[in-house]
């Protein structure tokens, strides 16, 4: 089962791809929060991304490589970890490991499941084709209306908000853990790193959840005010 890569190299792959994915999650959220600036801002941003040309594909391929490397390496490490203790303890106890750290493979799987749904929803436009091909007054793809109409269906909004909780847990452990794995630890900065990771995870939870919640309560409306 063991590849020729050492445990520390595999963990470093997790850390580096994890850091890149943290950056993606943050940028993705910052872009999406432009929905609060109105239809024009969000659609203009989406059109700009679409017109990046080769850079868009460079980003997409980079992102795909990070995701695949992160998931494959995680699967390898998890299988090795399970094999390392063939028979579990009768009495299982935890002294100081956090809930987020113990559920990391599980929250990762849930986030992966959500990611597939999310891509089917907004990228491949399979789940809500009726909202997916609208255009705005300037002839651009109307991302704004697509998002608002989708999130008006409460089961969709609830699924998006619910998926942000395991993502938040995953990030709260991973974002601090990656510094340890890469050897970037000093007792003076350690509490700050742990705090920053939790703050980052909560920021992602709050920022991403705010969009479906704002649509549900009617704070974000269609362009005509409907």
């Amino acid at each position: 089962m063991r590849l020729s890569l050492s445990s520390i190299v595999k963990k470093s792959i997790m850390a580096v791809t994890g850091l890149a994915l943290c950056g993606f999650v943050l940028a993705h959220m910052a872009g999406n929060l432009q929905i609060f600036l109105g239809q024009d801002a969000l659609n203009a941003y989406a059109a700009k991304l679409q017109h990046l040309g080769p850079f868009l594909w460079l980003m997409r391929i980079g992102l795909l490589v990070c995701f695949v490397a992160h998931i494959v390496t995680a699967a390898l490490l998890t299988v090795e970890n399970r094999l390392a203790r063939p028979s579990p303890y009768l009495h299982q106890a935890t002294v100081k490991a956090t809930f987020a750290s113990r559920t990391l493979p599980m929250t990762g799987l849930i986030v992966l499941g959500f990611l597939i749904y999310h891509l089917a929803h907004f990228t491949f436009k399979l789940t809500h084709p009726e909202h997916a091909h609208l255009s705005d007054a300037l002839g651009r793809h109307d991302v704004y209306s697509m998002v608002v109409l989708s999130f008006r269906e409460w089961p969709v909004s609830v699924a998006y908000v619910a998926a942000m909780v395991p993502l938040c847990l995953h990030l709260s452990h991973g974002a601090a853990s990656l510094f340890q794995t890469l050897g970037l630890r000093h007792e003076r900065y350690q509490p700050a790193i742990r705090c920053a990771a939790r703050g980052f995870a909560l920021l992602i939870l709050a920022g991403n959840s705010s969009i479906p919640l704002a649509v549900l309560v009617g704070a974000v409306k269609l362009p005509g005010g409907a």
């Binding site: 050492s6 445990s7 100081k96 490991a97 956090t98 510094f179 050897g183 970037l184």
Partner: peptide, 29 residues
């Protein structure tokens, strides 16, 4: 197995050896 940075090890170590040495080894490696 592989370390998942949960630090259960340092909690039970009878000599209270810190997990900061694990970061040091990662760095050295």
């Amino acid at each position: 197995g592989n370390c998942t940075n949960q630090y259960e090890c340092e909690a039970v170590c009878p000599k209270s050896i810190s997990s900061s040495f694990i970061a040091r080894m990662n760095r050295e490696y």
